[in-house]
Nucleic acid binder design. Structure first.
Lengths: 213, 213
DNA sequence: GTCTATAGAAGGATAGAC
DNA sequence: GTCTATCCTTCTATAGAC
């Protein structure tokens, strides 16, 4: 196995990386050709329009959320709440590794194209939904630590909002501080939720910092 | 007073509105000419490059945060914590009024241009800083309600992150729900902070919902 | 499936008259 | 300060040979 990568896949991966750095409107089809080592004929053979290519990129992210994001974290961390903060920490590392040039691939595209390309919104939404669902499951796995009245899905959505906002502020300032501060406050919220709960029920094991794992 | 609006101002306002809807790369200089009722000669007389125009738009937002955003809310609401949620509610109304086409003018541009136009970042940051500072002051005005150990500036930054993330998710889904849910969870956090505090100090007056004001 | 060549529109920006 | 005309580049997309 591991045959030579198909032309189509090379195009999708080149477009994915360029969209991530330069955005959709900031990336030309000719740049994608160059990066993929492919000529115009092939590009338009597989993707008749640029929007088709955007859809393929978003589909790539949708199908790779497990192996690309969740699985590496879940392998290292077993505690469901710490898994959430482990996922968030992956984005922090992405920020640092590429000097704040890269943020959330979906979030960037969402703001840029959701007005002008309505046909793309469903796939953007599907990416967000999968992310939220993964976090929701983590919260449900730690259901007994949280107050009964909280909605896991709402907390998961909120967590995504904090992530996206924190990434935006750190990319603008070219500093990890806004992101780290946002996540620190989010953790404070989680801890207060959990503390409010354990005052009414059984004590739980002490939480692990992601840096100890 | 109220003299005829200057050509320069008409250009800035036209660019501001077009950037808000279509983004920076999605807006052409010719569209701006048409919207402002101005010819190319005038446009390039005032703004030699498109980036100069972007800087002028960001400067417009920077100088109008008080009269455009804060003052209308502060007039209606006097409680400092409710002022924060009143400001957030202004964005909710913006979402609804324009059917989720419009989000945060600064946030949209921040993600789109912060890689490709480094000279614009300082002004983007300055807009964020002013917003955060305004919220920080509200928190400080209610300092006694919050636990002593919290950092007002951190909470203000966190509030902005939630706002930006919530706007992003609602614009993508074309529904107010993600935004409203995010703000509801943020309010839950504020209430837990305040509740944790009053258990150690004097009781305070009951909070007002923004809808009662 | 991939190649070369190119159409046709729109992009940002400039020159020079008035 | 504003006008018209236009330059040059880049863009998305197509045609037709191989």
């Amino acid at each position: 196995m591991n045959e030579t990568i198909s032309t189509r896949d090379r195009i999708v991966e080149a477009a994915r990386d360029l969209f991530l750095v330069n955005g959709y409107n900031g990336t030309g089809m000719s740049q994608i050709q160059t990066a993929a080592g492919v000529r115009g004929g092939s590009l338009y053979y597989f993707f008749p329009t640029k929007e088709d290519l955007l859809l393929a990129v978003l589909d790539w992210y949708r199908t790779h959320i497990w192996e690309g994001l969740l699985q590496p974290v879940y392998e290292r961390i077993s505690d469901p709440v710490e898994r959430i903060f482990g996922v968030l920490d992956s984005y922090r590392q992405l920020l640092l590794m590429f000097e704040f040039e890269l943020g959330c691939p979906i979030g960037n595209l969402a703001l840029e194209v959701s007005n002008s390309h309505p046909g793309v919104r469903a796939l953007l939404q599907s990416n967000f939904d999968n992310w939220i669902e993964a976090i929701e499951i983590c919260i449900q796995d730690a259901r007994d630590r949280f107050p009964k009245e909280i909605e896991p899905k709402q907390i998961a959505l909120f967590t995504l909002a904090v992530l996206e906002g924190g990434l935006m502020l750190s990319r603008t300032s070219r500093s990890a501080e806004p992101f780290e501060d946002s996540i620190a406050v989010l953790r404070d919220y989680y801890e207060r939720l959990i503390r409010d709960e354990i005052s009414w029920s059984a004590p739980r094991q002490s939480p692990l910092s992601p840096h100890e794992l």
